[in-house]
Amino acid sequence: MNKGDREMFYLVSGGAASGKSAFAEDLAVRLGGERVYLATMQPWDAECEQRILRHRRLRSGKGFRTVECYEDLRQADIPDGGTVLVECLSNLAANCLFQNGRMQDPQTVYRQILCGVEYLLQKAGHLVVVTNELFSDGGGYDEGTQQYLILLGKLNRTLAARADGVAELVFGLPVFHKGGDFFETVGAVV
């Protein structure tokens, strides 16, 4: 099968303010089809609202329909065969792990999120998932944060194994950890 005909799954990661959203949006636009932006950030406070506004501005004019989905990806209203961009896994994982103000069972949350991603993979055409690099500072966190880091790390590893392409953004430059040629095929290189 020709690479270009297949439905693709990309995982895009990076640290804070590393340009991962801009890269992921550009990738989704290049993949074509009806574009849906699955937004997982809840507008808790003014700072979250600012971030959401910044993201809205960044993707305006790129033809995305925004669908808000804070916890269960299987509830998301997405069309068959379109290109779905999930922004981002780190918010989704936090929303699910700390639902109703207390920590849920990480293993259950892990399975729920994977089921949600499977649902998107079945229903959507191309899928781009944005996640986050939160794993390289000193540590010394409370139990909840540690469980969260383990959960997100495990999700990242499982999705990276499943993905056709994995890119890490480093100050706006993509480092391809897997499937670099798939990114090149669609022209998503800097």
Binding site: G15, A17, T145
Partner: peptide, 20 residues
Amino acid sequence: IGCGVVPMDAFLRDWREKTG
């Protein structure tokens, strides 16, 4: 400095964002 947990302190968050 952007590859860690989001800091609790607002200035540290701004600093991380600006540096990125």
